[in-house]
Computed example of a mutant assay.
Amino acid sequence: MVDHPDDVEWSRLFHGSGPACDTPRHLSALLGDDATTFVDGYSHLWSTTLRREGRAWPSTAPTALLVAELLDDSLLGADDPTLPDAMLAYLHAIGVAADLGDHAAVTRARVEHHAAELRAWTSDYLAADRDGRARMWQDGTGLGELVLDQAALACFDLVPTLLRRVLPHLASERPRRRACAAAAIGSLARHPSASAQRPALLEQLTSAARATESPHDLATMLIAVGDLGGDTRPWLTAPNAGVRGCAALAPGLSGDATADRVLLDLARSPRAFVDSFGDMAPPLQLQSRPHQDLLVRTPPQGRRR
C-alpha cells in the first residue's frame, strides 16, 4: 500500500480518460486561485478519478490519499469553506468503492494469482491509443475487469488510513463539515479493521446527531449511524419526513413495523422526502447505491441486510 502521494508512480496508473499523470496537477489546482484550473481540477476529481456509480479506477486509491492530504491543507477552501466538505464527500465515495463485504479475501487471491498478467495488461493499456484501450476492455481475457477488482482492493487496503484522517473533522465547528465527516465515517468504518472502533464511533455519531439542528445534516448522520449498525429508532417519529426516511433506512431496522411504514409512506409520496430538505439535495449517501434506490424502489423489498 502507498503511504504518501509522493511515492505514487502516476505514470503506471490510469483513470477514466487514460494515463493518470495529470491527476496530481489537477488536484493541486484546488489549492490555487485560478478559476479555470480550479474548475477543471474539481471536475477531474469527480468525473475522471471515479467510475460510474462510484467504483474505482487503478488511480482512485492514490487519488484518495492525495485528497486526504489536501483535506488538512490550510490553503484548501481559503475562499470557499465548503471545499473541505466536498473532499469528505469524495472520501465517503471511496468508502463505498472499497466496501468489498465478504469478498476481499477471494478478490485478493485472484489478483495475486494473476499479478504478472495484470501488470502486462496495464502496461499495454497505458501504451495504447484511445481506440486500442477501448478494444482491450473487450479482449476476452477478463483481465481488464480483474484490474478493476485490483483497484477496489487498493481502496480497501487504504481505508484504515483514510478513516484516521477523517475522524478529527467530526469535531469541526462547522455543522455541514461534521455531517460530511459522519457520512465518510459511515462508509469507511464498515471496513473489518474498524470493528473494534465501531462502538465508540457509533457513540460519537449518535451524540453528534442529537446535537444537530439542521434536518439535512441530521438525516446525513442518521444514515451513517444506521450503516454502522446503530439504533436510529428514536428518529422514526421525527416531524421531518426526510429525517424519518433516513432513520428508517438503517439495515438493522429491516422488518421493523414502524420503519417499514415510514418507507412505505415515502414510496407513496417521494416528493415529500425531497421537499423536506428545502432547496438542498438529499443527503450525499443517496447519490450511491444502495441508498439511492430509496427514491425509486418500493420498500421494504430491496433493503440492504
Rank of each mutant, 00 (worst) to 15 (best):
D231P: 01
A115G: 12
P270C: 02
R25N: 08
L228W: 10
Q138R: 08
L253F: 01
R190H: 01
G32L: 05
S195C: 09
S11K: 15
C246V: 03
V111T: 13
L30Q: 00
R190L: 07
D227Y: 07
Q204K: 10
L222G: 09
L295E: 12
V296G: 09
V296R: 14
V8Y: 11
T63H: 06
L50D: 02
A181G: 05
T206L: 02
L228A: 03
G226K: 04
A98R: 06
L253K: 06
G32H: 01
L228Y: 05
F38I: 09
T237C: 03
D260N: 01
D6L: 11
R176S: 11
S254H: 13
A194P: 06
F273G: 11
D275T: 05
D85S: 12
G245F: 03
S74R: 13
A194Y: 06
A224C: 13
L70N: 02
H114D: 15
L202C: 05
A259V: 06
V262D: 08
T141L: 01
A97M: 05
L76Y: 05
M1G: 12
D73F: 08
Q301I: 09
P160S: 11
G302S: 10
D72E: 10
A152Y: 03
R135C: 12
S276L: 01
R304Y: 00
Q204W: 11
S11I: 13
D33V: 08
D72M: 08
A64T: 00
R268M: 11
G95L: 04
V2A: 12
D73A: 07
H114A: 01
D3E: 15
D227P: 02
D256F: 04
A104H: 05
A134G: 15
R110A: 11
V262S: 04
L162S: 08
L65R: 00
F38Y: 10
L66H: 08
T206A: 00
A105I: 09
E145A: 09
S17M: 13
P62D: 00
L100K: 02
A259D: 00
V243F: 12
E112V: 01
A97T: 03
L264K: 13
H92Q: 14
D131H: 14
L170R: 05
A154P: 06
